[in-house]
C-alpha cells in the first residue's frame, strides 16, 4: 500500500447537483506512467484537480504521496509537477521572467535543463507571454511543471495543443524522465498513440468512474477482435462470453472480447463449425470498443 503514489477510494466530487466523479477507485504504484483515457466530460481534469487539492473532495478518500490532497505539505508540493489543460500565465511577463519567477519558489530548480528545453522546443526567452501561441504556451507550461524535476507529474492533456514535432519532443522528454522508474506520471489524453508509446498503465474513465485500470500490455493482450465465419447463417442471439460488442452479418460476425483465451475460441469453433480469426487491437480501438460497450 505504501508503494502507491496515488490512491483513491470511492472518491466523489459534485458541483451542486451535478456529480462529476461517482466513486473513483484508483491505486497508482510508484514509477508507473499512467495514461488517463476518457471521453469529454468523463471527469479526468476534475480527478486531477481533486488529487492536487485545487478542488475539495465531496466524499471518499484520496492520498497523494501519502498525504491528504487538500493539505499537502510544502515538501510534497515541491515534488509535484502540474501542467494544466489550459495554461494561464501572466501575459505581462516574458518567457524567461516567468521561468525565473516560478523557479524562485523551488530550491532544486534546474535552470540548465529549462534552458535546454527552451532551445529544444524552440521557445524565445525574450518573447512576451501574451504573444505566444496556444502550443507555445503549452510548451512553456510543461517547462514550468517540469523545471524542478518533480517525482510525480500530473499532466492534463499536455499534448493537446502541440504539433507533431512538439509531441515527439514531449514524449522523448517523458521517456527520459521515466527511465529510472523512480518518477511517476499521470496524464490524461485523447491521443492514444502517444499513450501507447510511453504508458505502462492505463486508466479508462467513463461517466465519473474508472472502467478499467491496469497495465497497458495486459489490456492489449486481453482485448481482441474475433472474426467468425460459419457455413450457416448465425442467429441474432449469437454471443461470445466476455463480448464487449457483437456485429452479426449473415454467416459472419465481428466480436470484441474483453478476455480472449483458447477455450473461448475453441468453443466457438466446436459449436458453429466456423473458422475464427483473432485480431490484435490498438489502444484507440480498445478504447472505442470499451466506450461503445457502455
Amino acid at each position: 500500500m505504501n508503494n502507491d503514489i496515488i490512491r483513491t477510494s470511492g472518491l466523489r466530487k459534485h458541483f451542486g447537483k451535478n456529480e462529476v466523479l461517482r466513486g473513483v477507485d484508483l491505486a497508482i504504484p510508484r514509477g508507473a506512467v499512467v495514461g488517463l483515457l476518457g471521453s469529454n466530460g468523463a471527469g479526468k481534469s476534475t480527478l486531477i484537480k481533486c488529487l492536487l487539492g485545487l478542488l475539495k473532495i465531496s466524499a471518499g478518500t484520496a492520498t497523494l504521496m501519502g498525504e491528504d490532497p487538500w493539505n499537502l505539505s510544502a515538501h510534497t508540493k515541491s515534488r509535484i509537477g502540474y501542467v494544466p489543460q489550459v495554461v494561464h500565465l501572466y501575459p505581462w511577463m516574458k518567457v524567461r521572467q516567468v521561468i525565473e519567477y516560478t523557479g524562485a519558489f523551488y530550491a532544486n530548480w534546474d535552470h540548465a535543463w529549462c534552458r535546454e528545453l527552451l532551445d529544444q522546443w524552440d521557445l524565445d526567452g525574450a518573447a512576451w507571454i501574451r504573444n505566444l501561441s496556444t502550443g507555445q504556451l503549452q510548451r512553456l507550461g510543461l517547462i514550468l511543471g517540469m523545471g524542478h524535476r518533480p517525482d510525480l507529474y500530473l499532466l492534463d492533456e499536455p499534448a493537446a495543443s502541440l504539433d507533431p514535432s512538439g509531441r515527439r519532443s514531449l514524449l522523448r522528454s517523458l521517456l527520459e524522465i521515466t527511465e529510472d522508474r523512480e518518477h511517476s506520471i499521470l496524464f490524461s489524453t485523447h491521443i492514444t498513440s502517444d499513450l501507447e508509446r510511453i504508458a505502462s498503465h492505463v486508466a479508462i474513465m467513463g461517466n465519473g468512474v474508472i472502467d478499467y485500470f491496469g497495465e497497458l500490455d495486459e489490456l492489449k493482450d486481453s482485448v481482441k477482435r474475433i472474426r467468425v465465419h460459419s457455413p450457416v447463417d448465425l442467429p441474432p442471439d449469437f454471443s461470445v462470453p466476455g463480448a464487449l460488442r457483437t456485429e452479426i452479418n449473415g454467416d459472419s460476425a465481428i466480436v470484441a472480447v474483453a478476455a480472449v483465451n483458447d477455450e473461448v475460441i475453441d468453443g466457438i469453433r466446436d459449436r458453429w463449425d466456423a473458422s475464427v480469426d483473432v485480431e490484435d487491437l490498438n489502444l484507440e480501438d480498445i478504447f472505442l470498443e470499451l466506450h461503445d460497450a457502455q
Partner: peptide, 16 residues
C-alpha cells in the same frame, strides 16, 4: 482567484 490556482501549487503548505 483564478491566478491563485497557480500560487497554491507552489511549495508552500496551504495553511502557511
Amino acid at each position: 482567484r483564478d491566478t491563485l490556482a497557480r500560487d497554491i501549487l507552489y511549495p508552500v503548505a496551504r495553511e502557511r
